[in-house]
Each structure stands twice: as C-alpha cells, then as structure tokens.
Amino acid sequence: MNIFRLAGDMTHLASVLVLLLKIHTIKSCAGVSLRTQELYAIVFATRYLDIFTSFVSVYNTFMKLVFLGSSFSIVWYMRYHKAVHRTYDREQDTFRHWFLVLPCLVLALLIHEKFTFLEVLWTFSLYLEAVAILPQLVLLQRTRNIDNLTGQYIFLLGGYRGLYILNWIYRYFTEPHFVHWITWIAGLVQTLLYADFFYYYFLRFIGGRGVE
C-alpha cells in the first residue's frame, strides 16, 4: 500500500459517503443518475467476486464490503425509497447504459490477462467502470446547474482513479514485473472522461459560482 493508493481509496470512500449523505439526510437524489449507480453496482459485484475466496487484508475486505453495500443501497434508495425516488429525474436520465454492458463484456472476453471466469468478470468490471460515469455526465449536461453535493460527488469519483494512476506509476518503478496494461488503460480512459467536468469544476472554484 502506498500513499497514492490510500489517498485514492479514501477519495473513493469520500465520494460514496457524500452521495449517501445527500440521499440519506436531505432525501434527495436530484441531479444524480440512477443508471450510473446501477452500473457501479454491477462493477463492484463483478470485481469483488473473490471477496470470500481470496483474503488480502482486513482493510481490503472491509472496503469491498463498504463499496458493495453503498452502491447497492444507493440504487435501492433511488428506486424504492418514496421520498428519494420522487426527486429522481427519470425524464432526463435516459442514457442507454445497458448498451455499455454488452460491449464491455465482449471486450473482456477478447482482451484479458487470463481466460478464467473470475478474471474475465474482473476485466469486465474494469471496462465497465471506465464508462460507468457517462450517464451521469450526460445528465449533468442536461440539468445544467447542479447542487454542490452532487458536484463534490462527481469530483471525488473522478479523482480517485486519477490517484490510482499515480499509484500504478509508483508501483511500476518500485515493484519488479508490476505491469497491468489493461488496468492502466481502463483507468486512464476513465479519468480522461472527467477532463471536461474537471475543467468546469475548477472554473467554479475560481469563479465561486455553482457548477454551470
């Protein structure tokens, strides 16, 4: 574990806590894409299949349970909790996210490190996570102005994988044979998709306005 990866995990944890805070306390999911949340639930479900078979550390298992629990409970809140569901912007959140799942699955069947059930699903989760934010970014364009909590959520979610890239660079130079092209390229694509958002997000900080 290095400082970049720890910072990345804490940033990722902060993003789900911010979203849970928003949904649980003010009972609102305005500006949040349910489709992105559904994709993230699939990402964690397919990435952490080994949670019971391979033990890495208490920290690792704990964080996996947190991410699994939070992603599924956010989907539950947005779908079934009356007060929260009422604030869900169904008309605007229309990105055909199921069209992202199949290509990622096909790509994982073609490009992977090992052709085993767990490895292919794990690779699928990497590809899916890279594009999972798309419905949220499209919703963001449509709803124009968003509240600070949603803005923070997206910023933290985008930042965590950027910190992971620093972690991969660090591990590449400090650990022999640490090469994982698939993870690196998927992580880079994922982070680049936020470039546009980061630009407007920092403008907001400079300008002190809401995220236009």
Binding site: R5, D9, H12, D50, S54, V56, S57, N60, M63, K64, F67, E113, K114, W122, Y164, N167, T183
Partner: peptide
C-alpha cells in the same frame, strides 16, 4: 504455471 499475484487493489 506462475502464480498470478492476488489482486491487492480495490
């Protein structure tokens, strides 16, 4: 067959 390193990242 070389043991693939366990996935220690989240």
């Amino acid at each position: 067959e070389e043991e693939t390193p366990t996935k220690d990242e989240l």
